Amino acid sequence: MIFGRRGRERFLDALTGFEAAVREQDTDGAERAFQQVYRGFRKATDEETGQAGPRLAALLPQVPPGPDGMIAVMTGACVEKGADASRCAPYVLDGLAEALTAAGEFCARWAASGGGDLPDPESDAPDDAVLARVGPRAAAAWWTLPQWEMASVAMLNHASVRTGAGAERRTRLLESLRIVQEATGHDFKCLWYALLVLDEEPLVALHRPTGTGYALRMSGIGDTFQLHTLLADVLVGGGHLPGRAPSPQEAAVCRTAPGQVPTTGSFNLVAPDGTWLWNEGTPCDIPVVDGVRLLVLDPPPYERGWPAGRFFPHMTGDLVLERVLGEEETRRLLAGCSPARRVNGTAPSG
């Protein structure tokens, strides 16, 4: 017990020393103190990391580009151990926005100075030739972007952060990320999907074979695989539709339970214009019609299986049924929907 207390004291003492060195712009002192913080983190309790997360996050605006990525990652690790994500997220998302802007500049300068294969951001630090081509700030942003992705996803796992960030800010982050992805061909899929997650989002599902409709509300669903399983759980498992219902375990891992279990699809998900909506996408792919996302459920054209679970294992997901639509309302909505289109020569049944 004494060793544990001393270990935690060293961790907090090191963090205090790191904060002082950063404020004093003591580069060497900050590096030494951070190494002590890093070593102490592994033995720190959840209570200690709960205190450390907001303190580390608050340092991010003062830490130079490059090292700031590691501080962001450690902040994310503190949040995963229970630190208050709402207190940490504003600093991390501000840093992400700056890193994305500078990474976009990196791509533009790289192309303007001769192009060629982009450096691997997972490799060693940029050499003098790279720094001469793009500048130190842009290079630091490119090399730390994977770290900012990790830290930001840790924040965005929390509904309070997603709703607190606001749709406008997330749209700006997505646009900056799109520019980087299109310029590089690199897929920051986890960050992209995390920024797209919807909360308390209305969804209307129309089951074409039975002519029935359902008003639902979805939150924290990372991809359409997860949504598909939850739709089957709520509508088939709830006794509203015929077909195969997921097992309780299949549904649970799509909400809060850990792990993955095999499942089989119950529907073909179709947009109102007849376009298939693939499970590999996200609920944001579902078009908005008259202010509400509108989805058509057709019979599956063939059997499709996948591991039921959550794209973001630390993100709680849910789908709830709010009401069954009346016959007239459902008939009107279905009348505006096109039949499912053929895909690769395959036409869905029903």
Rank of each mutant, 00 (worst) to 15 (best):
A271R: 12
R42Y: 11
P300V: 11
N268P: 00
A20N: 01
R332S: 13
L269M: 14
T224F: 03
V204S: 01
L15W: 02
P262L: 02
P136M: 08
D318I: 00
Q260L: 03
T229P: 04
V270H: 07
G211R: 05
R5Y: 03
F188W: 15
P299L: 11
E19A: 11
L325P: 09
G326A: 08
A252R: 06
R255Q: 13
G185R: 12
L59R: 11
P64F: 08
V63A: 04
P283N: 08
V289H: 13
I179F: 03
Q147W: 09
C337V: 15
V130F: 01
A72R: 07
A72L: 05
V253P: 13
L295V: 14
T184A: 05
E47F: 00
T210G: 13
R170P: 05
V270G: 09
E31D: 13
S247Y: 03
C254R: 08
P262Q: 01
S113Q: 15
V253G: 12
A308Q: 05
Q36F: 01
A140I: 10
P272C: 09
E9D: 11
A194V: 02
F3C: 01
P209I: 11
P136I: 06
L59P: 10
G29C: 07
I286C: 06
S152W: 02
R42D: 12
C254D: 11
A99F: 10
R342Q: 15
R208H: 09
L216W: 07
R23I: 00
A85G: 01
G326M: 10
V134D: 02
V180R: 06
R332E: 15
V324I: 15
C190I: 00
L195E: 08
M315N: 07
V343H: 12
F11P: 03
A340T: 07
P258C: 08
S176I: 00
D273S: 13
N279W: 07
L191F: 01
D273I: 10
P287A: 14
F311M: 12
E175Y: 01
E31F: 04
T264D: 00
G265V: 02
L297W: 04
A89C: 13
P61I: 03
L196Q: 15
R341I: 12
S247G: 14
V261F: 06
P248S: 07
T45M: 05
L321W: 02
W110I: 13
L241S: 05
G50K: 05
G166V: 02
V320H: 05
Q260W: 03
S123T: 03
S266Y: 02
A58L: 09
T316R: 15
P146E: 12
P202G: 11
W148H: 09
R133I: 09
R137G: 00
V180M: 05
E122H: 14
F11I: 09
D28L: 15
E122M: 14
E201I: 02
I71A: 06
F267I: 11
A251G: 14
P54D: 04
Q35N: 06
P90T: 01
H186A: 14
D233L: 00
G185S: 12
L334T: 10
S86H: 07
Q260N: 09
F311A: 11
V180C: 10
R331I: 02
A251W: 01
T163A: 06
T263G: 09
P146N: 13
A58M: 10
R5K: 04
N344T: 08
T163P: 02
Q147G: 11
G50V: 03
V292F: 10
